[in-house]
Write a protein that binds this DNA or RNA. Structure first.
Length: 260
DNA sequence: AGGTATGTTAATTG
DNA sequence: GCAATTAACATACC
C-alpha cells in the first residue's frame, strides 16, 4: 500500500490515536528494520517522550517527539500501523510503542522492506536521502523541470524519489491511465501541454486517493486502481488491460485508451 | 516450481 | 562519471 496517499492515511491515523501520548515503552522486535541506529539507541531516544506532531514527505512519516531525534517511518511494500488496547504480540510486529493508557502502536512490516530511522529533522532527512520535492507540494513549473531531459519513461520519472517524492508503481499507473498516456512514453517526448496535464492529473489522483483513505475499494469505479489486473476489462472502454515491464516494474494499462 | 507483489539500494550496463 | 536497468532483500500467494 504505502505510496503517498497510504502514508498520509497512516499519518492521520497516528494523529487520531497516538498523538500527545507519552511513550511508556519501546520494543524493537526486529532490529533489521532499524536504519543506521541500534535498538538500544532508538529505544533510548523515544522512551519517555511524548508524540507531539507528525509530518510527511513523499513516502516517509516523521514523528516529532518531546526529544530532539525524530523517528522516521518508511513502510516498504507491506508496512502498516496498528493501534490497539492490550495488544497481543503479532508475528509481523517489528517495533511496538506502548503508551501509558495500555494501548500500543505497532509498526508491522511483513516483508521487512520498510525501515525506521532517526533524523535530526525532516529537512535533514530529505537532504541526506536526496529526496525530491513532495508530489503534493511541488509546483507545476518545478514538476515540468523534474521531468525535463530524462530519457527514461515518464512513469519511471514519476516513481523516481529523487525527482519527485511519493509516487510508486500503483499511482503512477493510475496517473498515466487518467492522462490517457502510455506507460512506454519517454519523458523527453512530452510537450509542455502534456507535462502540465500530467501534473494536474497527478494532483487530482493523489488528493482524491487521500480523501478515500487510500482504500482501493473506495476508489471510483472509473479508476484503473480497482481493476488493476489483466482479468477485468478497462473501466473506460471495456478493452483488455495489459501488463508490460517498464523500468523493471509491472505497468498495467489499457492499450486502447492510452495512446503510444 | 516459477512468477508476481504497493519499495529501496547496490551492482551492473551502456 | 552519469543515467538507466537489473538483482537482491523477505515473505506470501497463485
Amino acid at each position: 500500500m504505502p505510496e503517498l496517499p497510504d502514508v498520509e492515511t497512516f499519518r492521520k491515523y497516528l494523529d487520531a490515536t497516538a498523538l500527545h501520548q507519552h511513550v511508556a515503552d519501546v520494543a524493537v522486535r526486529e532490529k533489521r528494520v532499524l536504519k543506521d541506529v541500534s535498538a538500544r539507541d532508538f529505544e533510548r531516544a523515544v522512551k519517555g517522550r511524548q508524540f507531539e506532531a507528525t509530518d510527511r514527505h513523499g513516502k516517509y512519516l516523521f514523528v516529532h517527539t518531546s526529544g530532539s531525534a525524530v523517528p522516521v517511518l518508511h513502510f516498504g511494500m507491506t508496512g502498516l500501523l496498528a493501534y490497539e488496547k492490550e495488544r497481543e504480540p503479532q508475528r509481523y510486529d517489528r517495533v511496538v510503542f506502548g503508551f501509558e493508557n495500555r494501548y500500543s502502536l505497532a509498526y508491522q512490516c511483513r516483508r521487512l522492506l520498510g525501515r525506521i530511522a532517526l533524523a535530526k529533522s525532516p529537512a535533514h532527512f530529505v537532504q541526506d536521502n536526496n529526496l525530491g520535492p513532495d508530489a503534493l507540494q511541488i509546483g507545476r513549473e518545478k514538476f515540468v523541470e523534474a521531468l525535463r531531459g530524462a530519457q527514461a519513461a515518464a512513469k519511471s520519472c514519476l516513481m523516481d524519489q529523487e525527482r519527485l517524492a511519493g509516487i510508486g508503481n500503483i499511482y503512477s499507473d493510475e496517473i498515466l491511465f487518467q492522462s490517457r498516456m502510455s506507460p512506454k512514453r519517454k519523458a523527453d517526448t512530452l510537450s509542455a501541454a502534456e507535462a502540465a496535464q500530467l501534473y494536474r492529473t497527478m494532483r487530482r489522483v493523489l488528493t482524491m486517493a487521500i480523501e478515500r483513505r487510500a482504500d482501493p475499494a473506495r476508489m471510483p469505479a472509473s479508476w484503473l486502481l480497482p481493476h488493476r489486473n489483466t482479468e477485468e476489462p478497462c473501466p473506460r472502454c471495456r478493452g483488455t488491460i495489459a501488463r508490460i515491464k517498464v523500468g523493471g516494474r509491472s505497468a498495467y494499462w489499457c492499450p486502447r485508451c492510452q495512446a503510444e
